[in-house]
Simulated assay, not measured.
Amino acid sequence: MRILIVAATLFEVKDLISDLGLSISDSGQPEIYRSSLSSQVTVLITGAGMVATSFALGKQLATNQYDLAINLGIAGSFDRSISLGDVVEITEDTLAELGAEDDEDFISIDELGFGQSVFNSTYKLSARFGLRKTNAITVNTVHGNEASIYKLGSRINAQIESMEGAAFFYACRQVGLPAMQIRAVSNYVEKRNRDAWQIGLAIKNLNTFALEFLDWGRSAKSR
Results as ranks from 00 to 15, higher is better:
1 M>I: 04
2 R>S: 13
4 L>I: 11
7 A>S: 14
12 E>L: 03
12 E>A: 06
18 S>P: 00
20 L>S: 04
20 L>T: 05
23 S>G: 09
24 I>P: 13
26 D>K: 10
27 S>F: 14
33 Y>L: 04
34 R>Q: 14
36 S>H: 10
37 L>Y: 13
39 S>G: 15
42 T>W: 04
45 I>V: 10
53 T>F: 02
57 L>G: 06
58 G>Q: 04
58 G>M: 01
59 K>R: 04
67 D>R: 03
68 L>N: 00
69 A>G: 07
75 A>N: 11
76 G>A: 05
79 D>T: 03
81 S>G: 11
81 S>P: 07
82 I>F: 07
83 S>M: 09
84 L>V: 06
92 E>R: 15
92 E>Y: 12
95 L>D: 14
100 A>V: 14
101 E>C: 12
103 D>E: 12
103 D>Q: 12
104 E>V: 15
105 D>R: 15
106 F>W: 11
110 D>E: 14
112 L>Q: 01
112 L>K: 06
113 G>R: 08
116 Q>I: 13
120 N>R: 14
124 K>M: 14
125 L>T: 02
127 A>G: 10
127 A>Q: 14
129 F>D: 00
132 R>G: 02
132 R>A: 01
133 K>P: 02
133 K>H: 08
135 N>V: 09
136 A>Q: 02
138 T>V: 05
142 V>S: 02
146 E>Y: 02
147 A>K: 10
147 A>E: 01
149 I>S: 03
152 L>R: 11
157 N>L: 11
160 I>S: 07
160 I>N: 07
163 M>L: 08
163 M>A: 10
169 F>D: 09
170 Y>S: 12
173 R>M: 12
177 L>H: 02
178 P>N: 05
185 V>M: 06
189 V>H: 09
190 E>K: 09
193 N>D: 13
195 D>F: 13
199 I>S: 03
202 A>G: 01
205 N>M: 01
207 N>M: 00
210 A>N: 09
211 L>Y: 01
212 E>C: 00
216 W>C: 12
